[in-house]
């Protein structure tokens, strides 16, 4: 067993060197047009821009409240600092078809991705939604579970201070 682990570690290092630079797990999610998006590449391409990744679901009232509240000030935020918000829906096959029309009916101005079998949620070890992360230069610099009114101001403060 021990030898196996050593061998795997060695293999990881040798092969790992030869390939890309992304440090997040390569997990495929879908955009609202049904196309595959690799999360680690998406984050890898963002570089200096602070990316707010918000895990939510159509049936989660505090999640929707948080995203509604961010949407109201999103344009102002973007003028303050280079940032973007990616809202990852963890709706599974029961409700995932509702996401696209739901987003249209909300008028949200940020990107929405679908994590239908919760592969990304699992890879990032998220147990409950809402869950928000700020990622910059491939590093998680802030994360927060749950939402109470006013938490969104904290997000902007964190990004300003990065």
């Amino acid at each position: 067993m021990k030898k196996c682990v050593q061998l795997l570690l060695a293999l990881m290092l040798v092969l790992g060197h030869a390939y890309g630079q992304e440090s997040f797990p390569s997990v495929t999610v879908k955009n609202l047009q049904g196309k595959d998006v690799d999360f680690s590449k998406l984050i890898g391409q963002s570089g200096d821009t602070a990316v707010i990744v918000s895990f939510w679901a159509t049936w989660c009232v505090p999640c929707v409240t948080e995203l509604d509240n961010i949407n109201d000030v999103y344009a102002d935020w973007q003028r303050t600092k280079p940032l973007k918000l990616i809202a990852v829906s963890i709706d599974d096959a029961r409700t995932s078809r509702r996401v696209k029309p739901f987003v249209a009916g909300k008028g949200w101005h940020f990107d929405v991705l679908l994590d239908e079998n919760n592969n990304l949620k699992r890879a990032m070890n998220i147990t409950d939604v809402p869950y928000v992360m700020i990622i910059k230069n491939n590093k998680v610099v802030y994360q927060h579970t749950g939402y109470v009114a006013g938490n969104e101001d904290e997000l902007l403060e964190k990004i300003k201070n990065l």
């Binding site: 795997l8 990881m12 092969l15 060197h17 390939y19 890309g20 997040f24 390569s26 890879a123 070890n125």
Partner: peptide, 14 residues
Amino acid sequence: NFFKLDYTYRQFTA
């Protein structure tokens, strides 16, 4: 109770 740990290095995850 649930405890979970994942580690990713380049293309490898365990």
